[in-house]
C-alpha cells in the first residue's frame, strides 16, 4: 500500500540546510496497523506529512496504492488526500461552528456528494464510533475522547485506503487513549491500513508493527507478536 524508497527531506533555513529524513526505506502493506516511534525531533511528523501528501520530499520515491506521489499539483494532491487518505490529529481539529455530524460529513462535501447522502453516511459513522446520540452536539460540548472519535469518523467517511494519525492520544488520558486505540484496532480490523505516530509505548504495543526512527533513519522495525493485524 505504502512504498517508500530512499526518501530524503531537508528544510532550508536561510543558508543552513537541516536534513530531517536521511534516506528512509519503508513498505507498509494493505491492512497493516503500524506505529512510528522515536524521540522528539526525529522526523516522525515529517514522515507522516509526506505519507499524507501534505509535504514534499526532495529525493527518493513514494508510491501510494501503486501511484507515484511526487511533484503533484495542489489540485491533484487535494484529490488524493480526499480519496485515499484519512487524517487524525493530536488536537482533533474539528470546526467549532459545525456540529459533530457536519464535521464528519465535510470530506464528502469536497467529493460533491449530496447533502442528504453525506449526512446519512456521517450518522452511520457516528453510530459506529459510539456517538450516535451526539450527532447534533457542537465540538465544545464534547469531551476529548469524544472529539477524537468524531475526528476518526471524519477520517473514515471518504472510505480511504489509509488512516494517518499523528499522536492521536497525545491529548487524552490513559483510559480514553485505550478506547481510542481500540477504535483504531477496530478500524484496522475492517481492512484499513492504519499508521499511528506516537511516543507512548503503551500505544505502540497495541499495534502489530512498530517502526523506530532516530536521527532521520529507520533504526528498528519490529513486529509485535501478540497483536494480530
Amino acid at each position: 500500500m505504502i512504498h517508500i524508497n530512499q526518501i530524503r527531506k531537508s528544510y532550508q533555513m536561510g543558508s543552513l540546510s537541516l536534513e530531517v529524513l536521511k534516506g528512509i526505506d519503508l513498505n507498509i502493506e494493505e491492512g497493516e496497523l503500524v506505529s512510528i516511534m522515536g524521540p522528539s525531533g526525529s522526523g516522525k511528523s515529517t514522515l507522516l506529512n509526506i505519507l499524507g501528501i501534505l509535504d514534499q520530499y526532495q529525493e527518493g520515491e513514494y508510491h501510494l496504492a501503486g501511484t507515484l506521489m511526487k511533484s503533484l499539483s495542489e489540485r491533484k494532491a487535494a484529490y488524493y488526500r480526499n480519496h485515499y487518505l484519512g487524517f487524525v490529529f493530536q488536537s482533533f481539529h474539528l470546526l467549532e461552528f459545525k456540529n459533530a455530524l457536519e464535521n464528519v460529513a465535510l470530506p464528502l462535501y469536497y467529493q460533491k456528494v449530496s447533502r442528504r447522502k453525506r449526512n446519512r453516511k456521517a450518522r452511520e459513522l457516528l453510530e459506529r464510533v459510539g456517538l450516535g446520540d451526539r450527532a447534533e452536539h457542537m465540538p465544545n460540548e464534547l469531551s476529548g475522547g469524544q472529539k477524537q472519535r468524531v475526528a476518526i469518523a471524519r477520517a473514515l467517511i471518504s472510505d480511504p485506503k489509509v488512516i494517518l494519525a499523528d499522536e492521536p492520544t497525545g491529548a487524552l488520558d490513559s483510559q480514553t487513549s485505550d478506547q481510542v486505540m481500540d477504535l483504531f484496532k477496530e478500524v484496522n480490523a475492517s481492512g484499513k491500513t492504519v499508521v499511528i505516530v506516537t511516543h507512548e509505548a503503551e500505544v505502540a504495543e497495541k499495534t502489530s508493527r512498530t517502526i523506530h526512527l532516530r536521527d532521520g533513519v529507520v533504526q528498528n522495525d519490529t513486529h509485535n507478536a501478540g497483536v494480530a493485524s
Partner: peptide
Amino acid sequence: KEIGLRKAIGAPPS
C-alpha cells in the same frame, strides 16, 4: 486552522 484542515481533508485551492 480551519483552512488548513479543509485542505488536509481534500479541499482544492479553487
